[in-house]
Design a protein around this nucleic acid. Structure first.
Length: 255
DNA sequence: ATGGTCGCGGAGCGA
């Protein structure tokens, strides 16, 4: 089973690239972030025609998460309270087969010290509590999405330039570790110790062309899910070409 | 330190 995480930076703007990706790779499950579309305007039909069931949790202009699946989606819920009552649409949970999914679009935080940064740290604390309460590590758990946090220098093209900056600060990394504390593992690092594996490149600096990126999109998996995992791959083809997102899709394969 | 480019929505904000 292939599970994808992809921050598409507007689903409607990205539809040609998303459809091309789905047709070529036929992934089983796709967790999308930054759909930037209210549920009533979600472009479901072309995705359903490719065989995908859809659960979505969107809002106007900003944020928005969705899960596409070629297999039955069960027990879907959204927002910290499970009812979509959050101000920001960033949390979507569901079960597909024996895999418990949590799809997250973590707060960006703007810059260290900004009020949005404090909001990010508090928001991540709520995620940690949610994982602890609702995701037993004895199950196949996959917590994925755009975390807007790097793990270490290997995830950063210019570690000294980014030292203690947003996406790289110690408090953010500690908040990420707290989410993983019950027993989640960074699946990509289990398979690949190389530096320079990135998932996001800034539009403004033409980061992709300059090979200047960060790894901020992750798969955090429980021991049973790690046992089933056979690899994690970043699909760089999707970051190149016509009207790409600023993120590449990341693909986790489970046996 | 700032700006650079996208997307949304139709100016300025968020990333």
């Amino acid at each position: 089973m292939d599970i994808v995480t992809w921050n598409v930076n507007s689903l409607r703007a990205r539809m040609p690239r998303v459809l091309e990706f789905l047709e070529e790779r036929r992934p089983d499950v796709v967790c999308l972030q930054e759909t930037k579309v209210v549920d009533e305007l979600f472009p479901a039909e072309p995705l359903e025609e490719l065989g995908y069931q859809i659960v979505r949790h969107g809002q106007k202009t900003y944020n928005g998460v969705a899960i596409l699946s070629r297999h039955g989606i069960e027990d879907a819920w959204c927002g910290f309270d499970g009812d979509g009552s959050d101000e920001e649409a960033r949390v979507l949970g569901a079960t597909v087969g024996d895999v418990m999914l949590l799809n997250l679009y973590v707060v960006n935080g703007k810059s260290v010290g900004d009020p949005k940064y404090d909001h990010k740290l508090r928001w991540m604390e709520r995620v940690a509590a949610l994982v602890q309460e609702r995701y037993p590590m004895t199950e196949k758990v996959v917590v994925t999405g755009d975390f807007n946090v790097t793990f270490d220098d290997r995830d950063v093209y210019d570690p000294d330039g980014w030292r203690d900056k947003i996406l790289c600060s110690a408090p953010e990394r500690e908040a990420l570790a707290a989410i993983m504390a019950p027993g989640l593992v960074d699946a990509l690092r289990h398979f690949n110790q190389d530096e320079g594996v990135y998932t996001w490149w800034d539009f403004r600096t033409r980061g992709f062309q300059r090979k200047q990126g960060l790894r901020i999109d992750h798969f955090l998996v429980s021991p049973p899910a790690l046992e089933a995992a056979t690899g994690v791959e970043v699909d760089l083809v999707r970051r190149d070409g016509e009207k790409p997102s600023d993120h590449a899709p990341v693909i986790l394969t489970l046996a």
